[in-house]
């Protein structure tokens, strides 16, 4: 049994920063498996001297693991703490992979819905709207709106999850539950939808509405038609089809 050990702030910071590269070798077989071992490597080196114990510790992180890359910070923090306990003999080594297996899938679902499904569209649309309503302003405002809003939430969430995971591996589920992420997801999606409508109207105004009404009406028809056919054709083919139809109409009426 290794002597009692507690990771210092520098090592925890190092592990957290390495977690920003979790997906570098993402693959369909093990997904983030090698990434997880990479993230924890400095900690495992601190716990175990070079030799079979270190190899065994690394090998238990090479099993399949998949989570949302941001919410994985909580699992990384929790696994880090559990590795300390394993080294001190407080819990069996199997507790670490079991912990990762238990938290990975539900956290992946939560993160996908919140970050990919709500926050990114909403902040992207906010940035687009800034770019459209203030075309004479510096483009940096559009960039600052999008990246500033998104990353303020993203990075603080990652840091918070990592800290909570490390402080209390078992309590991180409760801490995340107290944030009511599904409620926030629903609210942010409603905001994103409103912003999408505002973007469409701003483009119509920029295109001449209400003076050149025919342009706006034509564009509105394309929006509705595209909304209907997008699930069948996908964005790529729908966009190319719209471009082709627009060019044909323009050439024919020119």
């Amino acid at each position: 049994m290794t002597a009692p050990v507690r990771f210092g702030a520098f090592l925890r910071l190092r592990v957290f920063l390495r977690s920003l590269l979790l997906q570098a070798s993402w693959n369909r077989e093990g997904m983030q498996n090698l990434g997880f071992a990479y993230v924890l490597y400095p900690a495992l080196c601190r716990l175990y001297p070079e030799g079979p114990a270190r190899v065994a510790a690394l090998q238990r992180h090479l099993d399949f693991f998949n989570c949302h890359p941001y919410l994985a910070a909580a699992v990384v923090g929790g696994a880090l703490r559990l590795e300390e306990r394993v080294a001190m003999g407080e819990v069996p080594a199997e507790a670490v992979p079991a912990y990762k297996r238990a938290l990975g899938p539900p956290f992946a679902a939560l993160g996908d819905a919140f970050f990919w499904g709500a926050l990114r569209p909403a902040t992207g649309l906010a940035g687009v709207l800034v770019a459209l309503i203030a075309p004479s302003a510096r483009p940096v405002w559009a960039l600052a709106t999008f990246l500033g809003l998104y990353n303020a939430i993203h990075l603080s969430a990652r840091a918070w999850l990592f800290v909570h995971g490390y402080a209390s591996p078992e309590g991180v589920v409760g801490a995340l539950g107290a944030v009511h992420l599904p409620d926030s997801t629903s609210l942010i999606k409603a905001t994103a939808a409103t912003l999408a409508g505002a973007v469409a109207a701003t483009l119509a105004v920029a295109g001449g509405w209400p003076i050149q009404t025919h342009h706006a009406v034509r564009a509105a028809i394309v929006v509705i038609a595209a909304y209907a056919i997008l699930p069948k054709l996908g964005p790529y083919f729908t966009a190319l089809a719209a471009l082709a139809v627009g060019v044909a109409i323009g050439v024919a009426t020119g």
């Binding site: 973007v199 595209a226 997008l230 729908t238 719209a242 627009g246 060019v247 044909a248 109409i249 323009g250």
Partner: peptide
Amino acid sequence: QGLEIGWIFFLAVCCASAVRAI
């Protein structure tokens, strides 16, 4: 002129795609 109208149609598809994305 055709490409200018194509641009408007393309922007319209982009708006529809944004609503679908939510």
